[in-house]
Nucleic acid binder design. Structure first.
Lengths: 137, 137
DNA sequence: GTAAACACTCCAGCGACTATAGATATGAGG
DNA sequence: CCTCATATCTATAGTCGCTGGAGTGTTTAC
């Protein structure tokens, strides 16, 4: 039996976050002690570790809920799980592409090295005038 | 004189967002018509375009507020503006690095191609067991 | 003069937590 | 058994940067 603090230490998920996950339906409401404190089994520890890992990988609560529901049915085909992960990979790749554009635009903008005044600062001028940009963003 | 709708069309910033920026102190409360509607000058159009551009580049409201304050003093040195942009570039680079790790982890995970069952699905097993990962994330 | 289009304020909601306040429970040492 | 530090409880509000809706009033084009 673990207290919520034990669970938190073992998974690295903060206590209020665990309660939040319970509210969001990612973990079931556990048994309670006589004094109304949450008491968890190993099962729930594992489930929380799964959630933590998926969140670290950037999956949404919604996606995790779906994956957890799938994992309750080991006999079913795993196409859906694969689809969720693949879609998430695509969205990660989009974010990377977008950030790379920002990176190169910012690189150009900060080429001004702070050795003059605001009046002719490239940072400020570039922000004021979108047409100074190389690409759309 | 522009109405809030004109401003919105010309900058691509949605109307509620313009009002939100006013609330946040990024743009001043403009004059009003007899019927209490906002009426803007060209100055405010340019200021909003600046904000839009900076937001597109991912700068926070806070950072934009600072940059706008700096741009009011063209005679001052621009080291601070440079610092803000440089710091932001660094944070963009961090995000990219992090997403790249996620990308490669997800690539490994989705290598399972949905042609079997949940019970032996790599996606589910990898999420349940962090030690299957190549690197920290 | 009328109707469509536009704008006003206020407030709630998004996602995924995080923090606070004030009350109660638990567990270890004396 | 008692005390006390620590842990936990609930409920609520705040974070960021918007976005949407309800209900009402204004402007403009015909």
């Amino acid at each position: 039996m673990y207290s919520i603090g034990d669970l938190s230490r073992r998974t690295g998920v903060k206590i209020p976050t665990i309660r939040y996950y319970e509210q969001m339906g990612l973990i079931e409401a556990p048994e309670r002690s006589e004094g109304n404190q949450r008491r968890y089994e190993k099962r729930e520890l594992e489930r929380l570790a799964f959630i933590r890992h998926a969140r670290d990988l950037g999956l949404s609560i919604e996606a995790i809920r779906d994956l957890l529901a799938l994992s309750e049915h080991p006999e079913r085909p795993c196409g859906e799980a694969d689809r969720i992960a693949t879609e998430h990979l695509a969205s990660v790749r989009e974010k990377i592409a977008r950030l790379r554009k920002l990176e190169s635009e910012l690189e150009r903008i900060v080429a001004c090295h702070g050795d003059h005044t605001i009046g002719d600062c490239y940072v400020i001028r570039a922000l004021a005038d979108h047409s100074m940009c190389e690409s759309e963003h």
